[in-house]
Design a binder for these strands. Sequence first.
DNA 1: ATGGTGGAAGGTCCA
Length: 261
Amino acid sequence: MALTVCTWNINSVRLRAGLVERLLREAAPDILCLQETKTPVDKFPAEPFAALGYHALAARGDKGYNGVAILSRAPLEPLPHVDFCGKGDARHVAARTGSGLEIHNFYVPAGGDEPDRNINAKFAHKLDFVAEMADWGRGRAGPAIAVGDLNIAPGEDDVWSHRELLKVVSHTPVEVEAFEKARAAGGWADVTRDLTPEGKLYTWWSYRAKDWALSDRGRRLDHVWASADVAPTARRVTVLKGARGWDKPSDHAPVIAEFDL
DNA sequence: ATGGTGGAAGGTCCA
């Protein structure tokens, strides 16, 4: 049975509900995981998505910041979220599908500008969060897919210039090390890279570029991880780069993964 | 080396 899971940092789901509707119409994933919804749950625009058949929603939200949501056509069983770093912010939401597959949706802290945990509390938070993801993954079992904006581009081909980004938050060696540790500790496969082992691959392009497509200075910040039992069923992962060029876009493109479960 | 843009706010904060 085929299952498609999409992850997308939407950068305000209220402002961009129309773009979400377009994605649901055009790509029609079975499950859509959103990050940076930037809204409390009681103001989440659930109705237009339900009208397209996405009746199941597991969402958490903060006013103005963070926020994660899982949309599905088939019913979801909500799972308890993990309060990474004990801050009570809405950076993780989880649910189980009818077939017993766990879906975990993450929004990892961006980490600020200065890649030094001693002078930048945001960077320390990011490293601590990812370290806790390793502990969490180590203690977890069963078929699962973990997606989200992890705000780290781990590989040399996951950034437009490895050399120029070595000291830029998102691609520093300490972040890449933490990322790999979290991935390995949970037994996760980086499905996107496993299916596309070579070549540049980005999911995010800054708003600050004059012409994001022309300069193409992207980073692969959005990830699809699968547990060891699920990973072999992955068939294809696609970055919907076109969505970065939609009107009033998010700075992230959706990533869609197809599994044959 | 710097600043560039965008969202939620309706301050600045965050990305």
